[in-house]
Each structure stands twice: as C-alpha cells, then as structure tokens.
Design a protein around this nucleic acid. Structure first.
Lengths: 166, 166
DNA sequence: ATGTGCATGTAACTGGTTACATGATTCG
DNA sequence: CGAATCATGTAACCAGTTACATGCACAT
C-alpha cells in the first residue's frame, strides 16, 4: 500500500484505534525502508507526484511476527490489542487463539477490579459512577465477543488464507 | 487530593482512561498552582516528605466549567469522552444530559460508518473483520448505556449532590 | 473561483514518558 | 533483608502532532 492508503484504512476503523498522522506514517515508512523491512515500487503518474507502493519483505514479515509473539503487557489498552489483532492475526490460528485467550483473562481481571472499585465507591451515583458502569458494560461486551470469536475459530480449523487464496 | 491520590484514582479506572504518569501529574499540579487555579496545603509528616493536598479554587472551577462547555470535537475518543464525563459531570444536569445526547449522535454516526466499511470489506472473515465486529459490538453497548443513563437522569430531576450533600 | 481529495514530503515543537534521585514504612 | 507502597520531585529524551510546502484533478 501507499502511505495514503494506510491512512485511509486506519481511518475507516474510526475511534477503534489511534489514527496516526500522515507525517508519522511517511517517516515510519522511510525508516522501515532504511532497515530493509519493506520495499518500495515507484509508480510514476503523468505530472502528478509519483505514487509509492510499499510491500513488506520477508525480513519485515519475520520482524512483525517476532513483535506479534512478544508477550502482551498486562495493562494493554483496547487500541493496542486491536492493533496487534489486525497486524498479527494473519500468522497462525493457534497464535491468534492464544492471543484472544490471553486477552480474555486480562479483561476478566480488569472487570473484577472495576467491580470492586465501583462497590467501594458506594451508591453516590454521580458521573464517576456512570463511568464505572460504562466500564463494566464494556468489559462484558468484550468478553462475549472474545468467546464467540474463539468458538468460531475452533469450529473452522483451517486458516482462511489457505482456503481463500489471499 | 495529593498527586499520589490522583494517580491512584485514575489507576482504579483501569484501561478506561489514560493513566498519566506521576511525573506528568506533579508538573501539571505545579503549573496549575502557578496559574492560581488550585491551592496547596502542606501537611508535614514527621520526617516523611510532607504530603501536599491540592484543592481547586473558584477560578479553577470556572476554568474547568469553561473547558467542559467547549463543543466536543466530532472524533472524540472514548477516553476523552469519559474524562470529560468524570470531570465535568458535576456541573448541571442539563449540561450532563446534553453531553450524553451529543455523544449518542456521534456514536450512532460512527456505527453506521463502521458498518459500511465492514460490508465493503466483504466476507473475508480474517482478523480485520474480527476487529470490525468488535467495533460494532462496542458501539451497540455504548448506545444502550447512553440511553439507559439518559432515562435514569430524566427520571430523577434533581442532581444527587443536592440530595446527598456532597 | 474555491474548496476538497489525492499524494508526497520535511521540520519545529511539545506533551508525556522514562529514568533518576531520595527516603521512610510495611510486608513477606 | 529485600521488595513493594507511600510520597515527592527534576530533567532528558522521544514519539507523534502540527504546520508548512507543493501541485494536480474534480466538483460546486
């Protein structure tokens, strides 16, 4: 993809993840190029600035896999988790499921902690309480989503890339 | 509260909001002090470093209210919204409800956008699709939470601070 | 005509983290 | 007896934003 393409894709995910600025994307891409992790193909357009299409190289893929398999920090944010999911999900189904299970444990722990903090707060019912309620609802949603994702994945044993060709 | 107290409170909200580092909290508190928005009371402990308890001043409260009433940027993140909710929720019930209604419209728009992007993606069912599904589940949860919060608030017309004294 | 989208890039700035420095207390 | 919690603070450093610079195409 080009830098601009990347920006658009990430934008389509809305508030789910941080939308890095274009400046950031371009300079990261340059750095990645210097490190020989990605390759560029310059496609010249007539008197437009040439489109630069980047592709990940084998070494880059290895580095990405290494990154994806690093143990997740215990306090990983939603955004960070989703970023990992999107970038690392295409490696192996086992890894993906392990990832989801790990996340499940963390979210469950967070939910208990949140519940305790909320009850410790008492029945004050102000805006802080609203925030806690929201947090609990979020945690519940994420847990059911994780469970259904895990079930779906365990029912279709082959990674879809193999089946569908991409 | 003291800087340390603030850190602990924010920590109790877990991944719901960004937990600013202690260094950040302390320097912010110093800056706020210089601007005469908060006051400090130094409570000396025997040969421990003295505890510094900060209180918001009238001028600070005014500044906070002004901040809370600034129109929310359309792409406001979850964390930013919750931060506003917690910090600004104690002003007036009308404002709080307006705030929630505004948020509702934004989340609804985001959900539609997400849905369109997801269907445009087709049935590829890879990890990116999982992320989109999650986003949709999240949006739905937030919407129901917002609705129930709005109903609750409209049923009890007086702000709880008045009833409960705090 | 004027603005928005495509498309790339660089440089300044800054908000916030990490690391350092200090020291008592409590818990295992 | 060392590790964690309480408790404060400063300074270096860095990642990422904002702003600037350029220019065509297409719509209003």
């Amino acid at each position: 993809m080009s830098g601009y393409d990347i920006k658009r894709l990430l934008k389509s995910l809305g508030w789910l993840i941080d939308g890095p600025s274009l400046g950031n994307i371009y300079s990261t891409l340059h750095a990645l190029c210097d490190e020989r992790l990605v390759s560029v193909e310059v496609i010249p357009h007539e008197n437009k600035p040439p489109r630069k299409v980047y592709s990940i190289k084998d070494e880059g893929r290895r580095a990405l896999e290494e990154w994806a398999n690093r143990p997740a920090p215990p306090k990983m944010s939603l955004k960070a988790f989703l970023m990992r999911l999107v970038l690392a999900g295409s490696f192996s189904q086992d890894k993906l499921m392990a990832h989801l299970q790990q996340r499940r444990a963390q979210v469950d722990a967070q939910r208990t902690a949140l519940q305790e903090a909320a009850t410790a707060l008492g029945e004050s019912a102000d805006s802080l309480r609203l925030a806690f309620d929201f947090g609990l609802a979020l945690a519940a949603t994420e847990l059911t989503w994780l469970d259904s994702a895990l079930i779906r994945l365990s029912q279709q044993p082959l990674p879809l890339e193999v089946v569908q060709g991409n």
